[in-house]
């Protein structure tokens, strides 16, 4: 109980004093996760729309695969990315291991199937509703994809936020590929793991509280942005 109280107190102190180390970590967390969410979404959303719209033989298999990949253990993703990027790995020459870029890559792999799967569900339902009209209007595949993505944008935003939420709280993969190096690859989650290991529970908890606050602020503000748009439209 004491630790929780101390955690809150320290969190408050860190925030109020604008602790430079803390802000660096927060910014890096945001940079890595927002980049990963944007990249993953730009892969996942068109993919989800395409498999909603297009009928082809491997479609069912692809959907099953996508749903299976959703449950990929992050630690294993981290390990594989590590092996690919390590000096002796196939992509070793790029020198990306233990950089934020490596962490972004790992997170993209983890959240792309998640975003695609959630997005696919709402796009598939919308397509069932639009199907006859869009066929009748002689639309191209690409026009159908664009229309579905635009008209389902609110549910897609929710899918992106789910991806964001998963990525910002992820620790296993980015610990392996990022290495939790101070001033280089340390982010909120890896710092929490480190402080917990060191036994500094108050600091770990303070970081945890900040992580949660961050996630809530981002979710709420994005929902508010999409809400105001809604009321303006209708």
């Amino acid at each position: 109980m004491n630790e929780i109280f101390a955690g809150f107190k320290q969190a408050l102190e860190l925030i109020v004093s604008i602790d430079p180390d803390l802000f660096e970590i927060v910014l890096r967390s945001l940079h890595v996760t927002i980049s990963a969410t944007i990249i993953a979404s730009s892969i996942a959303l068109p993919f989800a729309a395409y498999i909603a719209v297009k009928r082809f033989r491997a479609r069912r298999l692809l959907i099953a695969l996508m749903n299976a990949l959703m449950g990929l253990p992050p630690v294993v993703v981290g390990l594989v990315v590590y092996l690919m990027l390590s000096r002796s790995g196939p992509l070793g020459v790029l020198g990306l291991l233990f950089t934020p870029t490596a962490m972004i890559i790992a997170q993209v792999i983890i959240i792309t199937p998640l975003i695609a799967s959630i997005a696919h569900q709402s796009l598939r339902d919308l397509w069932a509703m639009y199907h006859d009209l869009l066929i009748s209007l002689n639309t191209t595949k690409w026009q159908r994809v664009k229309t579905l993505i635009w008209d389902a944008r609110r549910s897609l935003l929710t899918a992106m936020l789910a991806g964001f939420g998963r990525a910002i709280g992820e620790v296993g993969a980015i610990m392996i590929v990022g290495g939790n190096i101070d001033h280089l690859t340390r982010v909120l989650t890896t710092a929490i793991a480190l402080e917990t290991g060191k036994g500094d529970f108050a600091l770990a908890l303070a970081l945890g509280i900040i992580l949660i606050i961050l996630a809530i602020i981002i979710n709420v503000s994005i929902h508010m942005v999409s809400k105001t748009e809604r009321s303006k439209l209708w």
């Binding site: 919308l126 509703m129 639009y130 006859d132 009209l133 009748s136 209007l137 002689n138 639309t139 026009q143 229309t147 008209d151 389902a152 439209l233 209708w234």
Partner: peptide
């Protein structure tokens, strides 16, 4: 052009529903 038995509305405003095929 086809007007379906259960008219299909795009999840948009009435005006945008009108404009959609014209843009196409």
């Amino acid at each position: 052009a086809f007007v379906f038995q259960n008219p299909i509305m795009l999840r948009r405003s009435v005006l945008e529903n009108m404009i959609y095929p014209l843009h196409l």
